[in-house]
């Protein structure tokens, strides 16, 4: 498992290929890439700044990955999240999961993103045509994360 929080840009294709890393027990790799859009909530977005909570961020991501590993038979999980200034079109986040079979890889990738959106200390501040604004949390993200709670609460045996 690799968790990285960095300002530097990354190559999603290289990240996806690195997940397999010649481990011939891996039969399925699933990757998610989140990008900065140029439009959000009715306004044009020229760029954004990603703030995070140093010290807390990696710990929160590690906890999410550990929970995914507890729920599914995963052979590797990589999470990479950028911080600092970002432009539209740039990748913000990469989550990659590897398993012997596709179901675990798909489900775990979905789970890690849902938990990352609601439990990892990142905040987006958009630079819009009408000035800067903090992005507000969405109820739909909370609902998406809650789906997994009904299956098994974090920490349950």
């Amino acid at each position: 498992m690799a968790i990285r929080v960095q300002a530097a840009a990354f190559d999603p294709g290289a990240e996806l290929n690195a997940l397999h890393a010649a481990n011939v027990g891996i039969g399925a790799v699933v990757g998610f890439v989140g990008y900065v859009r140029d439009f959000n909530d009715g306004r044009e977005v020229a760029g954004m700044f990603l703030e995070h909570a140093p010290g807390m961020t990696e710990k929160a991501l590690a906890k999410i990955v550990a929970e995914a590993e507890r729920r599914w038979p995963l052979l590797r999980v990589d999470v990479l999240h950028r911080v600092g200034a970002l432009q539209p079109g740039e990748p913000i986040v990469f989550v990659g999961t590897a398993s012997a079979h596709r179901q675990a890889a798909f489900a775990a990738c979905d789970f890690v993103m849902d938990y990352l959106k609601t439990r990892a200390p990142f905040w987006k501040k958009e630079d819009t045509t009408e000035g800067p604004r903090w992005v507000e949390g969405r109820a739909s993200d909370e609902d998406a994360a809650a789906r997994w709670e009904s299956q098994c609460r974090p920490g349950c045996g």
Partner: peptide, 23 residues
Amino acid sequence: LCSLAEPLQDGDQVAFFPTVTGG
């Protein structure tokens, strides 16, 4: 991350913040 009901002790470090919006 914790709830507002989390017990506190001398020496703790706490943080308050709005809903997270990463990803």
